[in-house]
Nucleic acid binder design. Structure first.
Ligand SMILES: [Mn+2]
Ligand SMILES: [Mn+2]
Ligand SMILES: [Mn+2]
Ligand SMILES: [Mn+2]
Lengths: 241, 241
DNA sequence: ATTAATTTTTAGGTTTGTCTAAAAATTTGA
DNA sequence: TCAAATTTTTAGACAAACCTAAAAATTAAT
């Protein structure tokens, strides 16, 4: 509270007039906003609950409540006690900025440094909080303005606009149809390594040859060359187009 | 204290035996260690005082005292009350790791992203704390294992060994001798931009043509082509070989 | 060699982000 | 519908990293 006042006074004194009221979000606040964004998406636009947030932030519900009060005070979320939260325009903008940085860095780690797509998430979790507009834009350019990250996730542009991607789960595709692998719904190293082992990568063509009645497992033709076995669990987490 | 205990117990429980006692230095601790390293260098190996540290950490002496007690407890510094501090081997190793990352990222920002050498320090101050051994080593390789950063500062290797560099200030070079610009002693954007304006860059050859009796200012021949004026203040902050 | 000035440490507080335990609100379901 | 189960919030604490003010130690000057 007094820290805010000091910031405010500094603005007044340094600029004569208050020009902008920069949000100044901390590392922690950024993480909350990013997670709220992602869980809202996942919920199809519905409010995110305190408990959901506690799980994903690796904290307790009480801690989340504290943070929500604070984010609401900064007008970054819409918060009615006991009713869950959604992001305000401002909160969404910050969240998308963090997601943009996360995904751009992931592209860098894979395309430039040669990391595997299963090794990059934790590093990107750190890099996404580096605060420099110029850095983000120069990195974007250096990478050739990529639209999607190594997992096929869309990268928002500098204004927060997501490139559109029409895709569906492999498990929803009819038999005999040929599709292209464009993304994953799970990012765990175990899942990604499993795909590696089966040589399923972004861009692979997949044609469903057979679906087992018994366990809904698949036999698919990969890249028009080899037949591979895919469990239903995998098929439900592969995005294709 | 109880946090340390918990970490210790986790080690015991997860590993059966305590294998390593990882230091787990925070962002803030890393900054203290880095600054202690640099000020010790500057002091020719002598102890660094509390007040010196307060200046460079942008905090107050009281805060520094607190932190020194803490760092001493972790065996990262040699600290006798009222007598200043030096780094222990362990502290030095961490400091050199942070400096390594800082300088590698600076190379990246200039060589790959096209930043000017006057624009990179603040961004590198953030990037230097990204915690991933693999990232640092892959970045190093990607950059071609550079020995020096964009300011001519030596980059320690993964073991903390600095490449040796024999250089001296331009102000100590005798008249008529031709030398090569290899570094700067001041990193302020103002100074670096001043050098840019005079087209003095790393690798420029400099031959001292004249030194003014009155103000010790220089007229030097730059790259065997143009004569430029250099103040004594500048000459004292240019490293040449 | 004392006293005065300076430096450093300690004492006591604040803020941020976390925690546990307990209270309050909401949801479930008999 | 109303009691039980669940979720969420509040209350009260704690650790990290900072602060100001005051005490203690060191250094400098008469
Ligand atoms: Mn990721
Ligand atoms: Mn990703
Ligand atoms: Mn720097
Ligand atoms: Mn540098």
């Amino acid at each position: 509270m007094s820290k805010n006042l000091i910031n405010w006074l500094e603005n007044v004194l340094l600029q004569g007039i208050i020009i902008t009221l920069k949000a100044m979000t901390s590392f922690t606040e950024e993480n909350y906003l990013k997670i709220i964004y992602m869980l809202t998406e996942l919920n199809g636009g519905n409010e995110v609950s305190t408990n959901e947030l506690a799980e994903h932030t690796q904290t307790k519900a009480a801690s989340v409540s504290d943070m929500l009060r604070k984010l609401a005070e900064k007008n970054l979320i819409n918060y009615r006690k006991y009713q869950g939260v959604t992001l305000t325009k401002e909160g969404q903008y910050i969240a998308l900025g963090v997601i943009r940085k996360h995904r751009l860095w992931e592209v860098f780690l894979v395309e430039k440094l040669g990391f595997g797509w299963d090794e990059i998430h934790d590093i990107a979790e750190q890099l996404e909080h580096i605060d420099s507009k110029e850095l983000t834009e120069k990195l974007d350019k250096f990478l050739g303005n990529p639209q999607f990250d190594p997992h096929g996730d869309p990268i928002p542009d500098a204004k927060g606009k997501m490139p559109s991607m029409t895709s569906c789960k492999l498990s929803e595709v009819p038999i005999d149809q040929t599709v292209v692998m464009v993304g994953v719904l799970v990012h765990s190293p175990a899942f990604l390594q499993h795909l590696d082992k089966n040589q399923i990568t972004l861009g692979s063509t997949i044609k469903i040859q057979e679906i087992s009645e018994f366990d809904k497992s698949y036999i698919v033709l990969l890249n028009n060359s080899q037949s591979v076995f895919i469990s239903n669990e995998v098929a439900k987490n592969l995005l294709v187009k």
